[in-house]
Amino acid sequence: MDAKGAAAALLGVPVPGYEPVPAGENLSVMAMDTENSLREYLRIHLRIPFVTRLGPLAATFDFVADAAPGVREVLAVGKVCWEVRERNYDLVVVDAEASGHVVAQIASPRTIKSLVPRGPLRDQTTWMLGILDDPDCTGAVVVTTAEELPVTETVALVGRLRAETNTDVACVVVNAVEPDVGDAARTLAAEPWFTERCPQHSRSVMLSAARRTAQRESVAVLTGALPGVPLVEVPLHAETGAALATAVGGDLP
């Protein structure tokens, strides 16, 4: 959704468009764009085939979407739900927009339902909500780092998801967690002979330990604020797709 091609780059394929491209066995990747989603929607649901003639559509559509709350969002969410409903895939993973926007996006079918009294778009929201509200079908994965501000934002985001949507929060992923250097390393690095002989190494251990301590406090805040939400920790520098898959894959609910 927030595509700068980062997801595609991690999967080793060029920046995709709206048409899914294969990125390996059983794996496809696409970039969301609401204009194409609108075209597809019009073709499928309103049987309006003249898609090629909609040249000025983008500009005009921008204005409608600016004025009519929820319209842009529901086109993105609608496309995702459509792929789920049609069972085109076993799993649809959405790299969602930043936290300020994602709640409005997930809540958009509900927004449309409350604001638009009738019409085809309103009718579509019923099956979308059926998918988004079913915890066996849809789960939000909230990604954070173990720092104060991101943790505060994560707690706020989970609160808003629960207040403004019925979508289940499946888990919180804590990324870039500083590894534990271990008791022995900390003790050795603090010994007078060692700090004198190897001041640089001693400092590295001290900084790492301080970061680790601060992060543990942040994780404790998360655990305290979100009882019952599973936490998955990913160690620092698991940056490549394969390492991340190993770190995250096995633990995800």
Binding site: V181, G182, A185, R186, A189, H201, V205, S208
Partner: peptide
Amino acid sequence: GALVGIRAAHERRA
């Protein structure tokens, strides 16, 4: 074991 931990922390910082 301590040296392994120290080396890892230092390599991360470097």
